[in-house]
Amino acid sequence: MTGTDRQTDRRLERAILELLDRRAPAATICPSDAARAVYQGDDDGWRALMEPARRAARRLVAAGEVEVVQGGRPVDPARARGPVRIRRTP
């Protein structure tokens, strides 16, 4: 992993936490919200950051900072398939 990749990973983690901090305590965000917040362009290039955003969420789950949910219920982010949301750990 290059320094740039690590830097992007950290920026995605910070974006997830900052976006959640701006919302109500039980609010959720989509990984795409973090990808869009970190992406520096005007086109759809943020889509390339979707999997890195999901990985950032998984790291934050492992750290106990957030949980990944589907249908309002916590799920194992490594096994989740389809759309997920991220929220602060209660």
Rank of each mutant, 00 (worst) to 15 (best):
M1K: 14
T2A: 05
T2Y: 02
G3F: 13
G3V: 13
T4N: 09
T4G: 09
D5E: 12
R6W: 14
R6F: 15
Q7T: 08
Q7M: 11
Q7S: 11
T8V: 13
T8M: 10
T8P: 07
T8D: 08
D9G: 11
R10H: 15
R10Y: 13
R10M: 14
R11W: 11
R11P: 07
L12G: 02
E13I: 06
E13N: 08
E13C: 12
E13H: 08
R14Y: 11
A15M: 08
A15C: 10
I16F: 09
L17I: 11
E18P: 07
L19C: 03
L19D: 04
L19F: 06
L20D: 06
D21V: 03
R22T: 14
R22H: 14
R23H: 05
P25M: 02
P25D: 03
P25N: 02
P25T: 03
A26Q: 15
A26H: 15
A27H: 02
A27Y: 01
A27T: 02
A27V: 02
T28A: 03
T28D: 00
I29Q: 00
C30P: 12
P31E: 07
S32I: 09
S32E: 12
A35E: 02
R36W: 09
Y39I: 12
Y39F: 15
Y39T: 12
Y39V: 15
Q40R: 14
G41P: 02
D42S: 15
D43L: 02
D43P: 05
D43W: 01
D43S: 03
D43C: 01
D43Y: 02
D44C: 09
D44V: 09
D44L: 11
D44M: 10
G45M: 01
G45L: 01
G45Q: 01
W46F: 13
R47D: 13
A48K: 10
L49M: 06
L49H: 04
M50K: 06
M50T: 09
E51L: 07
E51M: 08
P52H: 05
P52L: 06
R54M: 15
R54T: 05
R55P: 07
A57Q: 04
A57L: 04
L60H: 03
A62G: 14
A62E: 13
A62C: 13
A62P: 10
A62K: 14
A62R: 15
A63V: 07
A63H: 08
G64A: 05
V66W: 00
V66F: 00
E67F: 05
V68W: 09
V69S: 07
V69W: 10
Q70V: 10
Q70I: 08
G71E: 07
G71I: 07
G72K: 03
P74D: 01
V75F: 00
V75R: 01
D76K: 05
A80I: 04
G82Q: 08
P83Q: 12
P83D: 12
P83V: 13
V84E: 00
V84H: 00
V84A: 01
R85T: 04
R88T: 10
R88L: 13
T89R: 15
T89S: 11
P90S: 03
P90I: 00
